[in-house]
Structure formats: structure tokens, C-alpha cells
Design a binder for these strands. Structure first.
Length: 1006
RNA sequence: GCCCCGGUGGUGGAAUUGGUAGACACGCAGGACUUAAAAUCCUGUGGCGGCAACGCUGUACGGGUUCAAGUCCCGUCUGGGGUACCA
């Protein structure tokens, strides 16, 4: 009987669904194991073969852990709010809900065909009101919390109110507070607090809430009509669609993720994520230690506060630069400079982020006319405005030390400002050409800091600055608070309403706040978000709800918790269940989420832990980034027919175009194309062409001429024959993409090609070796227009899901990106057929109950050992090889023994579950193979009696020598030295020493 | 610029702690079976030389450490990813 994968796979997929084989139990004696994939956004294009890569890997681990006796939670769901469905709705009017449901159905159908062991009863969808009810609920908890710096955790807002009621508030004294509000919030006493109006209280508390309404510079995308997060902007344009983005000051709901900056940094040390991913997060958080320092403005009580990491260079300050957006720009600018400064500021503001980034070498700035006083020397220091200083980072002002900072140096040179060296570098350095920015050297020209090395000077400077009250040691983060509102329709409504201009959150029993129906999915004529179109979208029919919706990352920041308790209508997750499942043991997904999703989900997890809802403060213990599978396109090379007659009548021209349009297309194989291209290049560059190569070219050109003749005859045209030819000129061969699904091993399936498009119906080919070989373009994105999309369904149809699973793993290391290429798939498919034949050696199913031989046991246990090792280190490609070796060896041994084949099937079942189940059943088992204990390696079968030693001389292996494993190194040495080959290679030379590494190598040093 | 990860046959890749480089698979060449095709099986396959035994050479390049280096160290080139007037 043949291996009929289609029936087998259909049968077992139905069996698993019917028996709910993969349903996770909430508790029990088994240890738990939680394997999670980053859930997909269900796009209209469906899944291509790249998407399941990570799912297959996680599925192998999930199934392996079930064999290992774990209670495995392996769920799947959909991140189903998002822009594409909304854009589609804008174009077609179809409700995004419907689009989303259709896409989900398609995704599900595709995933089911691959045989994943997901617990589908736990499916979640972020756009489901029963789900986003709890996303809204978490928002409310964030709104009702503040971050206490002393306890280093989030607390209920009530504790802060109590604090205000008893102690009032003074930002100069209270270290308790979060964010940058030390600069902004005026002090008040406990009594004043009690006198505050509700609005005043609300405004004050807004500075502390973890979800807050605040004014901030945001990335505004006019084309999309919405605000974008930093990680949604790439190179100054929107990540989705590539539309320009500008900076705009807006009132926005935001998340105070900055409060967690230090903990997000520290938490990285305790989790097993790749170093590159941790680095990306560290960079994103961007911690820098230094101090804040106030410069008093001359003839004023105002100060400019700067942040610097180099307080040691304080005596080298020659000017201060503030950002164009800085609030003091207007106040300090002198009358003479006003016009210049105003012009500059306007220009700078209109310059998009992209432009600013584009020409960083272009130095612009303008003097304000104002001076500040140096805190130590009292010297006058000019204040400049320059757009190299960013309003959003630090205090939006810098003290410029041109001798020791690259950008300050360029600025000073450009405007001829003084440059004062205050550090003597460790190596010679030309201060005319360059700044010395290294934290190395000894301080000079610096009063009390003189003679100190830089690192000590930094400490000493901060001490002195603090002592004299000029500023204080401070840590700055690059991380910004996350903007939480989007002016879009297809997202979670923010559960907030406004009463007397005060925002209030809904109470729990009012959730979910369901997305209202609207007539159009566009902003209103007044520029309000789409939700403003729903006239009845008001609390109690009276108070307007917030019109912004949540960003894409809201629902995904906690979904891993919902899988633990997906149907709970009372809580987002039951506490006992959260305690049982803890966090994700293995999380697999793409590296594109390094600074977006993975930062936000860590933030929300820490918050929920702080508030006592869950027991863990990191979402995932171990994380693997699967590589991207890129497209690989195939192309065919078309030869174009040309009519070259001159002085044609109109009639003739018409006939020509008529005839040409009816001619069959002619294609030449890749080898021919290469020859012609090379030939053309040689001719072009006047390079001499050798005989052999010219012959090759002539052969092809003759072949084409024959076709030409044929074509000409078939047209029965009156036009002279010489006027018609196929052009082989340098630019006249046309490269056309061809559907990769009708190409096998880069060989075009000609029949399929002729059927593929009507106009290729009669296509003709000039073959090489009887085949049409296509060209290849690697590393393109998979896209419809390139005809290089390969769906998992098409592979399942041709080769089966087990082949797809094995092949995707066999392609290479999981974490590596690679182009999709079906070339080797027959090898993997052949392996499964070979496995099948082990059970059908006699033609029908037959398995022997005889005891296994030593050789057979060795093959089996070698395989078990390797497969366990490989899974534990997530090296799935090598275990596929191991299975191949195993089956090859068992085939050589003609082994059909149950004692060998049964354990082998269990080992293979995580990788190729359908065939394993089927053969397991044929072996007479009633139950699924899923929970069979994974075989254990018995080392005693692996012990060899002898070892084949490579004998090397000065590190070069010369011959091999089979020696008993029990020999001592001394015995080995004397046997080797006495061997005739040794004597031959020594050639009478003296031996310096002999290295014997048991069971590895013998090296004779001459 | 800075940070991270890579560079191994015609191709994808293996070599886990420094110990026979190229496992496994594709492709290619030759052969068996077959009317033929498919399927299956066998042999060979880094390069150079040689009928062969075998020799030389070889993991981007140049050095170094070591009895021994794809693996460790230094420098250079190069590909990919992240990030940036971040003070």
C-alpha cells in the first residue's frame, strides 16, 4: 500500500478536532508548559509559507512536551483590530467586522490543514467585545493607578489622593513622583488640595495617572488622519503605507511607560531572550546617566535647565543651545534678534522630521541675543537656538562643549564660537579638526576638577553641583510615553466620557463600551475621528464618549493572559488560573516586534503584577525570533519579434501589428539567455570572443532563426521575409515573472505555463537539455505581482502537511532568514515514503515482534539522544537530518521490528504527526500517539567496543586506526608508534611528543 | 557613526566543549528496472594533480595563540538587522 498522505491527514485532523486531543487542562498533577506564538493579524492575502514557520516550531515543542508528560497550553488567536480592514472599509463600505471574519475563516482553514495542535477552544480575537471589554478594563486600572517611585510600583490613585490630603505636594521636595512633572506642577498644601475644584483635582491627578490625557508632540500622519507611535514610524514615514509624518502638539491619551523604564531594563537580565533583542530594547529605552544643571538667565530670574552626561566638562561650556520648540525661546529673545529667531523657529517647525534627519550635516541655528551665567565662573554664555537639539529629549536644552562633543564642535566651527579644551586626551589629538568625545583623559583648565581623570571628574562635578544647588544627578531615558489614541474606527473604544470638560472612566459594569455603527469610516468634516459620526455615542445619551480608539498594540499587550481563562465573563483572568499558568515558557515570533509589542506587553505585565492581579512580572521566560521567509521569484526570458521594413504603407503597418499580435510568444532557457547577454556585453566592450563561445552563441541564434522561419511561414504574410526577425540585442530580451507554483527545481512545467495565461497558450520554447530552466531572483518580498507567493495549502495539496512541516524545519536554523525554495522538498517527501516502506517491506503492512539486534538498538538510541538534544536547543533542522539517517540505516538493516519502529514513531510524531498517528494505529493502538511517553536514550546501546582513531602528524590526519575502547592512552600511544604507517610517516624523524585524546584523536608531533 | 548577528562545495545547510571540515538533502554525472514515463534502487560528486594507491590545497582576507583553529584572539573586507544631531 502506498503512502496516501491526503486521506491520512484528513482523517487525523478530524480525529483531533473531534476528541479535543489538545485541550489544555486547568490544573492536575502534570507540570505545566505554555508555548505561544505571536498571534497573527488576519490579512486579506491569507497565509503564505513564511507564516507557519514559527507555528511549526512551536507545535513541535508543544507536542514534544506532551510526550514528556507536561500539561501543555498551546493556543492561537487573532490580533483582529487593524488598519487594512479599515482601509478596505473606507474603499468599499464593507464593515471591517465582516472583512475580518472572512479573513479569520481563511486563516483558520489554512492552519487546520497543517495539523497544528492548538487548543482552539481557547481562541481569542482582540476585536471581540467579550475580549476588548477586558482591554478597556485594564485601561481603567491604568487610569486609576499612579507610579510610586519610593515603593517602585504602581499603586491605586487613592493612595496618592490621601497623600495630597494629608501632605499636599511640592515637587521640589517630593521624590515620589513620576515622569518629568517636577518641572511643571506648582506646589500646593493639603488644605489647598481640599479647596480645589473637581476640574483642578482632575488636572493635577492627570500628571500622575498611568493612562493619562496629556499634551505631547505626536507623529501626525495627515494622509491616514491619525497619530502614530514612534515604532510605527520608519525613516520619517508611516510604517504602513509610507505616508509622510509630521510633528504636532496634540492632546492625547498616553501610557506612562516611562515610569517603568528602569524595571523594563532590569527585567531583561532575568529572561532568556536573544542578546540582539535585549540590545534593541536597551537601545530603545536608552538610559543615560548624568546630571541636570540650571543656568540662570542674565538679568532675569528664569533659568535654563540642561541635561548632560558630561558634567566634568562644565568649564568648557562656550554656549547653550535650546530647541526651536523650547518654551523660553520667546521670553529670552532680544528685540534685535526677534525677527531672525522667529523666522528660524517657523522654518524649523515646518521642517518635517524626515527632512531634519535627511541633512544632519547641514548646520542651522540662530543667536537669541540672550546670555546665561556660568554657574561656577559667572561668565556670560550666549544662548542659541538650534534644531540639532530635540525638544522631546532631556530638557530640550544643552550646554555646548565644542571641544568635547562632535555636534557642538560642528556648530561652534560653523558660527565661529569659542572652543575651550578642558581635557588632555590620552593620545595626541588635533582640536582644530575634531572634538575629543572619549571619556578618557585628564581635566585641565577646570578649577577644582583639574588633574582628575574623566570618570572621577564626572562624580566630583555632580557632587559639587548638588552641593551648590545648581542641579542634581539624574538619569534620563530615551523612551517616551506611548501615545494611546488613534483617530481611527477599527479599534477598541477608549472607555472614557467627558462631563464639564473632565474625563471620567466608565465603571466595570458598563463594559464593554461597544464600537458604534457609523455611516462612513472616515473622519468627520470637522476633522473629528470616525466615531464622532455616531450621533448616539453618548453616555446616558448626554455626555460624549472619547472619539479616539486604542492603538493596535492594546489588545496584544495582555492576550497571553486571556488564553489562560478565555471565557471568563467576570474577570480578565481568574487569579488561580493565572497562578497555575504563570507566564509563557516559550514565545515564538518575528523580530519586528522587538521594540513595539514586546516592550508594551512587558509594561502591562509589570503593571498587572504591581496591582496584584497576576503573579509574574515578565510575560515570557524564553523567546525565539523566527527568521523571515522571503520570496524567491522565477523569471522566463522572452525574445521579441520585430518587423524592420522601412517605408511601409498604412495598410502594411496594420497588417504587421495584426500579424505580430497573433504570433506565439517565444522563450529561451536561462542558459541561452546568459550566453546572449554575455555575448552582447563582450561585443559592447569590444572584447575578443573565443571560438568556443561564439559557437555556443551561433547555435542559439540558429535555433531562434529556425523559429523565425517557422513563424514567418505560419503568418503567410506578404511582407518580405528579411523584414521580420527576433531581436537578440542588448536591451530587447524581456524578463517576465512566472508563477513559482508551476516551476519545479527551477524547471518550468511547460504544460502548466501554457494554461497559466491565455496569451501563453501557444508559447514556444528553446530548451537546453530538453528543459526550460527559469531564472531566479532571491530575497524579494512575497507578493501577488511577482507571482512568487506560495501558500501552505498548495504544498499540503502536493506533498502533504507532514512534508511541509518537515521541510520548513529542514530549510535551516529557525532564527535565520531565508528565501523560500521548493527545490529540496522531494528529499523530505521521499524520506516519509521511505519511512512508510519500513512498515510495508513485504508489500503489505508487516511488523515483526522479534527482539531487536544490537545494531538496530544502536540506531534507535542514537536517534533518540540526538532528537532530544536538538529539540531542547531548538535546532529543528538537524533533527530532521537525524530522522533521515535513522530511516536510511534501518532500511539498510531491513528492520521492521516493533521494538524499534514504535519508539521511532513517538520521536517523529512532534514533527510529522499525521503519519506517526496513522502508523501507530496500524501497529494496533487504539489511542492517539499524542500522550505516549517520549522514549529515553539508553546509553549502554551506544557504547562502542572500539574507536576508529584518526592518526595525525603535526595536525594532519594521515590514516585511521581501529583500536579497542578499553585501551589506556599509554597503550594507544605504543600501538600507534609501532604501526607500520607511523614508521612510514615518521621517515626516521625524531618524535617530540604524542598527544592522545581518548575517543577523539592521536596527534604525533615531529 | 554606534550596537547586534553573520560570511563553509554548484545550492540549502552540518560540525553542540578547539580534535578526521562538508553530515543530511537538493542538484549534477553515470548505471539498474521499464516499450516509455513516473516511482524506486545502486555508484560517484569541494578544488588541483594522478589509472590508482595517494599527494597538495581548502571554511571571506591578513596575522596570532595552540600538539591541533570553521571554532579562540587582533586587524581588514563584506552581507544582514537595530538605532541615531539622545546632549
Amino acid at each position: 500500500m502506498e503512502y496516501h498522505f491526503k486521506e491520512i491527514e484528513k482523517t487525523w485532523q478530524a480525529y483531533w478536532a473531534k476528541h479535543k486531543t489538545f485541550a489544555a487542562k486547568d490544573g492536575g498533577d502534570k507540570p505545566k508548559y505554555y508555548v505561544l506564538d505571536m498571534f497573527p493579524y488576519p490579512s486579506g492575502a491569507g497565509l503564505h509559507v513564511g507564516h507557519p514557520l514559527g507555528y511549526i516550531a512551536s507545535d513541535i515543542v508543544a507536542r514534544y512536551k506532551r510526550h514528556k508528560g507536561f500539561n501543555v497550553l498551546h493556543p492561537m488567536g487573532y490580533d483582529s483590530f487593524g488598519l487594512p480592514a479599515e482601509q478596505y472599509a473606507i474603499q468599499t463600505g464593507q464593515h471591517p467586522k465582516i472583512t475580518t471574519e472572512q479573513n479569520i475563516a481563511r486563516y483558520r482553514e489554512q492552519m487546520d490543514k497543517i495539523g497544528f495542535s492548538f487548543d482552539w477552544d481557547r481562541e481569542v480575537r482582540t476585536s471581540d467585545p467579550e475580549y476588548y471589554k477586558w482591554t478597556q478594563w485594564i485601561f481603567i486600572q491604568l487610569f486609576n493607578s499612579w507610579y510610586n517611585k519610593q515603593t517602585q510600583q504602581a499603586e491605586p490613585i487613592e493612595t496618592l489622593i490621601q497623600y495630597f490630603e494629608t501632605k499636599g505636594f511640592n515637587c521640589k521636595l517630593d521624590d515620589t513622583l513620576t515622569g518629568d512633572i517636577e518641572h511643571e506642577l506648582p506646589a500646593f498644601t493639603a488644605n489647598e488640595w481640599k479647596q480645589f475644584s473637581e476640574k483642578q483635582k482632575s488636572d493635577v491627578l492627570m500628571n500622575f495617572r498611568l493612562a493619562y490625557l496629556g499634551e505631547a508632540y505626536v507623529n501626525w500622519c495627515p494622509v491616514l488622519g491619525t497619530v502614530l507611535a514612534n515604532d510605527e514610524v520608519k525613516d520619517g514615514v508611516s510604517e504602513r503605507g509610507g505616508h509622510p509624518v509630521e510633528r504636532k502638539l496634540m492632546k492625547q491619551w498616553s501610557m506612562r511607560i516611562t515610569a517603568y523604564a528602569q524595571r523594563l531594563l532590569d527585567g531583561l537580565d532575568g529572561i532568556d531572550w536573544t542578546e540582539s533583542l535585549k540590545e534593541a530594547q536597551r537601545n530603545w529605552i536608552g538610559k543615560s546617566e548624568g546630571c541636570s544643571l540650571k543656568f540662570t538667565i542674565q538679568n532675569s530670574t528664569e533659568t535654563i535647565e540642561v541635561f548632560t552626561t558630561r558634567p566634568d566638562t562644565i568649564f568648557g561650556v562656550s554656549f547653550v543651545t535650546i530647541a526651536p520648540e523650547h518654551e523660553l525661546v520667546n521670553k529670552i529673545t532680544t528685540a534685535q534678534q526677534k525677527q531672525l529667531v522667529d523666522d528660524y523657529v517657523t522654518k524649523a517647525k515646518n521642517r518635517s522630521e524626515r527632512e531634519r534627519q535627511a541633512d544632519i550635516t547641514k548646520i542651522t541655528g540662530v543667536f537669541t541675543g540672550a546670555y546665561v551665567l556660568h554657574p561656577f565662573t559667572g561668565n556670560q554664555i550666549p544662548v542659541w537656538v538650534g534644531d540639532y537639539v530635540l525638544a522631546g529629549y532631556g530638557t530640550g536644552a544643552v550646554m555646548a562643549v565644542p571641544a568635547h562633543d562632535e555636534r557642538d564642535f560642528r556648530f561652534a566651527k560653523h558660527f565661529s564660537l569659542p572652543i575651550t579644551q578642558v581635557i588632555e586626551p590620552t593620545i595626541s589629538h588635533d582640536f582644530e579638526k575634531d572634538a575629543w568625545g572619549e571619556k578618557d583623559g585628564v581635566l585641565i583648565n577646570s578649577d577644582f576638577l583639574n588633574t582628575l581623570p574623566v570618570k572621577q571628574a564626572i562624580k566630583r562635578a555632580i557632587e559639587e553641583i548638588e552641593k551648590r544647588g545648581f542641579g542634581k544627578g539624574k538619569i534620563n531615558y530615551r523612551l517616551r510615553d506611548a501615545v494611546f489614541g488613534r483617530q481611527r474606527y477599527w479599534g477598541e473604544p477608549i472607555p472614557v466620557y467627558y462631563k464639564n470638560d473632565i474625563p471620567y472612566v466608565l465603571s466595570e459594569n458598563e463594559l464593554p463600551l461597544v464600537l458604534p455603527e457609523v455611516d462612513k469610516y472616515l473622519p468627520t468634516e470637522d476633522g473629528e475621528p470616525p466615531l464622532a459620526r455616531a450621533s448616539s455615542f453618548k453616555k446616558d445619551g448626554e455626555y460624549a464618549y472619547e472619539f479616539s480608539t486604542m492603538p493596535g498594540w492594546a489588545g496584544s499587550s495582555w492576550y497571553f493572559l486571556r488564553y489562560m481563562d478565555p471565557k471568563n465573563s467576570q474577570q480578565f483572568v481568574n487569579k488561580d488560573l493565572a497562578n497555575y499558568w504563570q507566564n509563557i515558557d516559550l514565545y515564538i515570533g518575528g523580530s519586528e516586534h522587538a521594540t513595539g509589542h514586546l516592550l508594551y506587553v512587558r509594561f502591562w505585565t509589570k503593571f498587572l503584577k504591581d496591582r496584584g492581579y497576576i503573579p509574574v512580572d515578565e510575560p515570557a521566560k524564553k523567546l525565539i525570533n523566527q527568521g523571515m521567509i522571503q520570496g524567491r521569484s522565477n523569471v522566463v526570458y522572452k525574445v521579441v519579434g520585430v518587423w524592420g521594413g522601412s517605408n511601409l504603407t498604412e495598410e502594411e503597418s496594420e497588417e504587421i501589428s495584426n500579424v505580430i499580435s497573433k504570433l506565439p510568444e517565444l522563450f529561451i532557457s536561462k542558459g541561452h539567455y546568459d550566453v546572449i547577454t554575455k555575448y552582447n556585453n563582450l561585443v559592447e566592450s569590444n572584447t575578443p570572443i573565443d571560438e568556443e563561445f561564439r559557437n555556443k552563441y551561433n547555435y542559439i541564434s540558429n535555433e531562434i532563426e529556425k523559429k523565425q522561419e517557422e513563424y514567418y511561414k505560419s503568418t503567410k504574410s506578404k511582407i518580405p521575409k528579411d523584414d521580420f526577425w527576433f531581436s537578440l540585442g542588448i536591451n530587447s530580451l524581456v524578463t517576465q515573472n512566472v508563477d513559482v507554483n508551476i516551476v519545479q527545481n527551477d524547471i518550468l512545467t511547460i504544460e502548466a505555463f501554457r494554461k497559466w495565461r491565455k496569451y501563453y497558450e501557444n508559447a514556444e520554447f528553446i530548451l537546453e537539455d530538453g528543459k526550460y530552466i527559469c531564472g531566479v531572483i532571491d530575497n524579494e518580498k512575497m507578493s501577488k505581482s511577482k507571482y512568487n507567493v506560495v501558500t501552505p495549502d498548495s504544498i499540503c495539496e502536493k506533498f502533504g502537511a507532514d512534508t511541509l512541516r518537515l521541510y520548513e524545519m529542514f530549510l535551516g536554523p529557525l532564527e535565520q532568514s531565508k528565501p523560500w525554495n521548493t527545490n529540496g522538498i522531494t528529499g523530505v517527501h521521499g524520506f516519509l515514503k521511505k519511512l512508510w516502506r519500513l512498515f510495508y517491506q513485504t508489500g503489505s503492512f508487516s511488523v515483526s515482534d522479534e527482539a531487536a539486534t544490537k545494531a538496530e538498538l544502536k540506531v534507535l538510541h542514537k536517534t533518540i539522544k540526538k532528537v532530544i538534544e536538538d529539540i531542547e536547543r531548538f535546532s529543528f533542522n538537524t533533527s530532521v537530518s537525524t530522522f533521515m539517517i535513522c530511516v536510511n540505516e534501518l532500511t539498510d538493516l531491513k528492520c521492521n521490528k516493533r521494538a524499534i519502529l514504535e519508539p521511532l514513531l513517538i520521536c517523529l510524531s512532534p514533527y510529522a504527526p499525521h503519519i506517526a498517528e496513522e502508523l501507530w494505529k496500524q501497529l494496533g493502538h487504539q489511542d492517539t500517539i499524542t500522550f505516549e511517553p517520549f522514549p529515553e536514550c539508553n546509553e549502554s546501546y551506544l557504547v562502542d567496543d572500539s574507536f576508529n582513531y584518526p592518526i595525525s602528524f603535526n595536525g594532519k590526519t594521515r590514516f585511521n586506526l581501529e583500536l579497542a575502547a578499553t585501551l589506556s592512552p599509554q597503550e594507544i600511544e605504543s600501538l600507534v608508534m609501532a604501526h607500520e604507517n607511523t614508521i612510514k610517516y615518521l621517515d626516521g624523524k625524531p618524535v617530540k611528543k604524542v598527544i592522545v585524546v581518548p575517543k577523539k584523536i592521536v596527534n604525533v608531533v615531529l
